[in-house]
Nucleic acid binder design. Sequence first.
DNA 1: AATGAATGAGCGTTCATTCAT
DNA 2: GATGAATGAACGCTCATTCAT
Lengths: 194, 194, 194, 194
Amino acid sequence: MTTRENILKHSLHDFAFEGYGGASMAKIAEKSGITKSTIYSHFSSKEDIYLAVLDQFIHYSAQLWKDEKKRLETLHTESALRETLFNVYKNAQQNRALTIFWHKSMISPPAKIQAEVMDKISLPVQNMKDFLTHVFTKGIKSGEIPSEHNVPYLVNIFFGLVQCITLGHIFDENTDPEKMIEDMFNYFWKGIGK
Amino acid sequence: MTTRENILKHSLHDFAFEGYGGASMAKIAEKSGITKSTIYSHFSSKEDIYLAVLDQFIHYSAQLWKDEKKRLETLHTESALRETLFNVYKNAQQNRALTIFWHKSMISPPAKIQAEVMDKISLPVQNMKDFLTHVFTKGIKSGEIPSEHNVPYLVNIFFGLVQCITLGHIFDENTDPEKMIEDMFNYFWKGIGK
Amino acid sequence: MTTRENILKHSLHDFAFEGYGGASMAKIAEKSGITKSTIYSHFSSKEDIYLAVLDQFIHYSAQLWKDEKKRLETLHTESALRETLFNVYKNAQQNRALTIFWHKSMISPPAKIQAEVMDKISLPVQNMKDFLTHVFTKGIKSGEIPSEHNVPYLVNIFFGLVQCITLGHIFDENTDPEKMIEDMFNYFWKGIGK
Amino acid sequence: MTTRENILKHSLHDFAFEGYGGASMAKIAEKSGITKSTIYSHFSSKEDIYLAVLDQFIHYSAQLWKDEKKRLETLHTESALRETLFNVYKNAQQNRALTIFWHKSMISPPAKIQAEVMDKISLPVQNMKDFLTHVFTKGIKSGEIPSEHNVPYLVNIFFGLVQCITLGHIFDENTDPEKMIEDMFNYFWKGIGK
DNA sequence: AATGAATGAGCGTTCATTCAT
DNA sequence: GATGAATGAACGCTCATTCAT
């Protein structure tokens, strides 16, 4: 792993769990096994690192939904959507820091780079929505979904379900995550059915 | 407004939009029109302020769901749930800072007081879930909701919808919020129906 | 001496001898027997200190020329001008730091506050020129100085002599300062005579 | 222009306008279109650059006064001195950075290399004074200047006039530089006359 | 209840410099 | 001759907090 990647890894973690304001160059440097000054050989500022982490997430996300599109292409709409929810859950579990980083960037980006962050973050959101638009449109075409539904609204609502799941606040010790997702999807699917 | 309330008001705003690490006593003092020292006449530390803001939210939330329970008591389950979503939306719109403060406290509380925050925050969550449990149980009793459903799962899923709506990320300039909420609820309601 | 005065005293010294860029908050604090942070209880920034030192000089200078005017009012023009040069020399000797600070501020003020410094520094220059204008005008009226001379030019040239003397570069170990000033003045006085 | 010359050029500029403490290797490198490291292929330290710039000035100055001596050799003393002032003015105008660098080096050289700088800077001063000594001595011999004058004092005073003019603070928007110099010289010349 | 002065620790950043390539 | 990566020290400044008044 290059120094740059190393810095990005630990920055992601601290931005996610401590927040932009709470993360510090000193801690990131220490965790990365280098000095504060060295960070500045690779990034011009703390903001620059944040944006680099964001770029990394965007790239990761773009690849993810591209792969997902290909992988779920052959499935029925119902299966594709159900699988999507489960995959989102697994990904969120495996990349906890990335998930939290994403959510925080959406809820309240660092004040000074708010505009730039908001601008960048719209890309992965769009990727996800494009994927969902593709699936829902196909579902209507194939007759699996009644044509009376408005695709953008379906997309946004399903996007909401995805967020619930990635955030994970709907899961508690008394509920089984998998059953929860299964139920959530079933209600939605039955809800939009004939 | 007392000095204490004044401090809490501006603290809430900065904790919400700048994060715990990003908020500073100096800025809060300045916005409140007092000196830093004065803050320490009312609170013992920054953490103390955070917990006081949290307590305020808890009290506010407890009252809210108590009122909601009374207000929706006479309605059918369907109307009660639909109204709930709309009220949640209106409240989130009117109290943007409080909403963001709540979400951030859930996602990643200040590291040093994590345990205490997690402990406290479970209360408003429980208030909300108690309310929902009450409504869903009544709905099953009255036959409006099929008895095969598991109430805790219904509650958690509906709790998820509430969160989507308060966060507001499912709304974009191409969708009408009211219609979005209407659709979301309808899918859910139809989804859990017979 | 108040803390503020103490800070200003050591700041003046370091700004003069190390330059604005060369002076450091840490050294000023140390010399003043306080911590770096304490400086910021009294000044908002390094630039702020610089401007405060400048203000102090301006006030000092204004008082100086006001006193000089009163003190030399009764003398003949020749004596008044001669005395002026000697007083300037004594003052420069006694307030070495202030003199150097003044010259550096004129030659090349701190880049970031250049405009503000240039603006402020014009005041003491004007004070001095006003004094000289007063003396030369009186000298022409009384007939001590031929009326064919142009007062502004006389003032600027004499202002130049003042600067030579304050800078002190014309003095070396082989020359007697007092005689040097005496000569310099005599040449000038004879030069503008009939 | 060689890399070395390029570095020296930008160093001179920054030393002059930002001061030794205010100039930085990074900025000099950037302006020179090279990396910081490359500077160290040509100079061993920041101090080394400063001394190199100083050497360059010394060489430039030595050449200048040598040329001046030759050029003004055939003129009368009066013309030679008048021409000297005008040439000094033109040179100062054309080489603003060099002039400021020289003055700052005299007023307050970098603390760490003060001794070395003071030592070196005495050379161009001596060159100038040697030139002036030559002219004044010749003037006395030829009878143009009364023999009662003490040459070193004349030299130092004229050296003061030179400094006034190079510094340029005696010029303001209400005065014509050329006339100012003309007047200054005339007063001096008449002042030392019979 | 409120303040001004003070502080040690830490902030993000830049400094001049080194070294292997 | 020139570079990129790295560093320890220092930079100006802000942090949360204390204390006497």
